[in-house]
């Protein structure tokens, strides 16, 4: 990882590095609800928003949207369709389960630290484009939660909350997401930073589908450490779980193939479940510098 220059606000905030991404914006792929007018397409149509298309008039529609000129020319009533633009409400969900504490030498940092770096940078980018950002920490339940807001010190509070995140041994990601779903009022973007190492993936995605049903845009950032993909070399290890799930002695050479098959199946399951739920899935290796990942993500998202 390159040397970073952290700010006083958060040890995970590297403003100099983020300066390279100053021209980039985070854009949504779906229409969203926002509090204020902004750069993002709103779920609301009409008003002074951007013209999109014509549609044949139906009885009962607002006559103010009727395009009289078209009616005069063609003799058929059409209404003008406008795409409203609003600001982004983004909630960063950080998984603080015990498994996120894992970090290999090759990665240089734990998955949680990686998520903290990435989330902090994203909060900075989102705030810079006049969007609102919030954070929710999930582990054995819904932890500290800061809803997206437009207050002047919002980003500061969010980044401080991100910095304070610590892991807890247990994982109840699905329940925590449901709790979060119950608390949020307005649609927006839910960005989940997690390794998805949970006992019941279906329950997690059932919770995520709740967001999707409410037209949230859900972005899954699947954090994977290199040593999780491929067991380290060595004769024998005593593997110890990070979430009170015991220990086991094994020789990596003997189980490497089976392990990799199972881990690949897990990654594929997360991806398939996410895509089938309409989520945006992105696999993130913690061996890749987070700025590179963030840059790629924003390029892909820039509209």
């Amino acid at each position: 990882m390159p040397a970073t220059v952290t700010s006083d606000r958060s040890r995970f905030l590297d403003l100099r590095a983020l300066a390279a991404l100053a021209h980039m914006r985070f854009a949504t792929r779906h229409q969203i609800d926002g509090s204020y007018s902004g750069r993002h397409r709103s779920r609301q149509q009409g008003g002074a928003a951007e013209f999109v298309d014509y549609r044949e008039y139906s009885a009962g529609e607002d006559l103010r949207r009727l395009d009289w000129k078209v009616l005069a020319r063609t003799g058929r009533p059409y209404v003008r369709l406008y795409q409203d633009e609003t600001n982004l409400l983004c909630t960063l969900v950080i998984d603080a389960s015990g498994s996120m504490r894992f970090g290999s030498r090759r990665a240089g940092m734990s998955k949680l630290e990686y998520a903290q770096h990435l989330a902090t940078a994203l909060s900075q980018v989102i705030t810079r484009q006049q969007d609102q950002v919030g954070v929710a920490v999930v582990s054995d339940g819904l932890g500290e939660t800061i809803p997206p807001g437009g207050a002047p010190g919002q980003v500061l509070r969010v980044q401080e909350a991100i910095e304070r995140v610590e892991t807890k041994p247990a994982t109840r990601l699905a329940e925590a997401l449901r709790d979060l779903f119950g608390r949020v009022q307005r649609r927006g973007v839910l960005m989940v930073f997690s390794d998805f190492l949970v006992a019941d993936l279906q329950a997690v995605f059932a919770s995520l589908r709740l967001f999707r049903h409410r037209r949230w845009e859900v972005v899954l950032l699947h954090l994977i450490d290199p040593d999780e993909e491929r067991l380290p070399e060595g004769r024998a290890y005593r593997f110890e779980g990070l979430e009170n799930d015991g220990r086991v002695d094994a020789s990596p050479a003997e189980i490497r193939r089976l392990y990799e098959e199972r881990f690949a199946a897990h990654v594929a399951a997360v991806r398939d479940l996410g895509l089938s739920a309409g989520c945006d899935y992105r696999r993130v290796s913690t061996a890749t510098p987070y700025l590179q990942v963030l840059g790629g993500f924003l390029v892909e998202r820039s509209g």
Partner: peptide, 14 residues
């Protein structure tokens, strides 16, 4: 060698 691992359940299964 002691090695904490987040994916121990895959190791166990393997």
């Amino acid at each position: 060698v002691r090695l904490p691992l987040s994916t121990i359940r895959f190791v166990l299964e393997a």
